[in-house]
Design a binder for these strands. Structure first.
Lengths: 204, 204, 204, 204
DNA sequence: CATGAATGAGACTTCATTCAT
DNA sequence: CATGAATGAAGTCTCATTCAT
């Protein structure tokens, strides 16, 4: 049943994601990961040079997987309101499907060293930048009104992240489509009361 | 000059906030806190029974201070758009004025034990509930349109929190008034382009 | 109510006997003794230079008190069977009247350092020697038959000590006269069954 | 050659007996035991969960070994005078052969916690009870005269224990047979001088 | 004299990492 | 390659002792 080389690396990563996400970096023992992966403690060191290195690999792997899911090209052609709706729906789906990984990425602040923390900040900046560019383009296209792109980028970024809380903390199971529509509606149309308000959202 | 018991407690708390916020719970040694407070290692144990207990006290003290700043009564009379603008502005000011404390509260997820984590979740829930109630009242008053209050509450909560990132991570110095205005404008009016768009910048 | 100089020394000794006998040397904190004596922690150091020194003083004081009770002169004139009966009875009475002190002296083996242990051994040797001399004299006087005095001395010493166990450990309340009579009967007459056995209870 | 798990446990126990018996529980450092066992400090914790747990294991192991030596069945058939002689001889031999263990068991009063102390008392009671039963049977059989069995049991128990003193404290080397005969002679026949006294014991 | 806040040496214990098998 | 017994650096916490008040 023992899988060959690359399989074992993945086996360890999977075990590490589970245990790290449950207990955090410092409360996780190498032995626990080994037990979860059903291998010997020493074997981990055949694949990862240290605990911190394993943690980094887990995060990197996770983000690689995350980014693979959101390869922005197919979204580029969408109009902005569709774009953020799809972005949000995709994120909710991702969070629901990868709770453990999400928990890890979300709690990545418990960064065990400066280097990793800086790297995490950089990753975050990149995401903000990508959204900012899209915003600029959409303003040009008159899809959205002229706004400070930094602020809007933060708002969108934060709103997407806010889905995590009910999912990973309260362990709720959100309906991706419903929530994506509500959220993007708020962002696109605002919340101010309008006299001749039409029945909102729903069936598009 | 010796024996200002309460003074020394605060001295320790202050040192702990600084070191914990810099290094996180697990990377902080009691000795470092003692050095920062310019006292002996053992002295900390005269005031706090353990490292975890010190951490909890620091968080509790911080939140007490935080809540004292946002005693909601004075905000209640404001119309909703003013309400979130003031809320936002106050938070940015607080973040800027208390970077270290904010860093701690924001990273409180690195909770070193389950009990503290649960308590942190509860605190978060309370904040969400308060905003939710305000939302319900504002819908009744037709200040804002009829929306799922949970969702809106999450969005507001998350967005306010998101302004921590540039401040505590990137160490930027945001202009509270400017950002609060932009932010409340987005939330209130949405971002969609409108033909006859008025010059933005809220009703000020 | 504060007593003058010498009174406070005794106050500390009394508190120390109580706490040491309850918890043993290493499980006793100077603070506990201070609390029991209703004085400040630092005050103990006005009268005793260190914890170990206090312990030694307590033992010395206790033994001085013990020896004062057994000033052997008045026993010298007694015949041997009376001598051990009186010795035994006096010891049981002493144990009952001074349970805490007895507990300390009996557990003095938890000697916190070599020096004190050696001194305790010496004290024990002295007691054995005194009994041995009495034995030699009694053999000369044909009160008792010719026996190895060392052995007999150990037997007597150990048996007297053995009555500590029910008193200080099981907290029983022995009848001194009854036990002393039975005990001396055993030592004097042996336990072997004799055909024409006289009703037992010594020659009284 | 590596991995004889049970062997290493014994190695640690042996080292612990030596160091504990020399220095007592509180004056023994885990590092010393490790050094004596020629292993690393952490290795002890692979076999024993804590210092107190190691101490308990040492005592338990020692008593198990002790009781194995005195499985009373073979002694039951002996007449009482033979019984106590054999009992004493066996004990002296055991004490001489296991000085360090004896020192530990004898000083077990330095019990580091209440639980262990209570257990020690119980063990002691059991030993006293066993002797008491033998006494009752011997009185029935008219091997010994009618005596208070509690007192006699204490006397015998104490006498046996008294051998420890010269052996473990003064480090003397007693001749087991000689001393057992002398002691049992005292117990059986008493010490009172008798006119027609026969030359006692000795050369047999 | 009396005090108790402050101190820091020192002990236990954990756990990432190594390496002989 | 795989293992897990062994290791020891490092961190938390205790408590006898000091000394400024």
């Amino acid at each position: 049943m023992k899988k060959p080389k690359e399989g074992k690396r993945q086996q360890i990563i999977a075990a590490a994601v589970k245990i790290f996400s449950q207990n955090g970096y410092h409360n996780t023992k190498m032995e626990e990961i080994a037990a979860e992966a059903e291998i010997g403690k020493g074997t981990i060191y055949e694949y990862f040079s240290s605990k911190i290195s394993l943690f980094q690999s887990v995060i990197e792997d996770g983000l690689k997987y995350y980014h693979a899911k959101f390869d922005a090209d197919k979204m580029k052609i969408l109009p902005f309101d569709e774009y953020i709706k799809v972005l949000m729906e995709a994120h909710i789906k991702f969070y629901l499907a990868n709770k453990e990984l999400t928990r890890m990425l979300f709690l990545e602040k418990e960064a065990p060293d400066k280097e990793l923390l800086e790297w995490a900040i950089e990753v975050h900046s990149t995401r903000v930048e990508i959204i900012k560019e899209r915003i600029l383009k959409s303003i040009e296209r008159r899809e959205i009104r002229s706004l400070d792109p930094s602020i809007l980028s933060y708002v969108i970024q934060a709103t997407i992240a806010s889905f995590c809380v009910p999912i990973i903390v309260e362990d709720k199971s959100l309906d991706p489509q419903y929530y994506a529509e509500r959220y993007s509606d708020i962002i696109m149309n605002g919340i101010r009361y309008k006299e001749a308000e039409m029945p909102r959202g729903g069936g598009v």
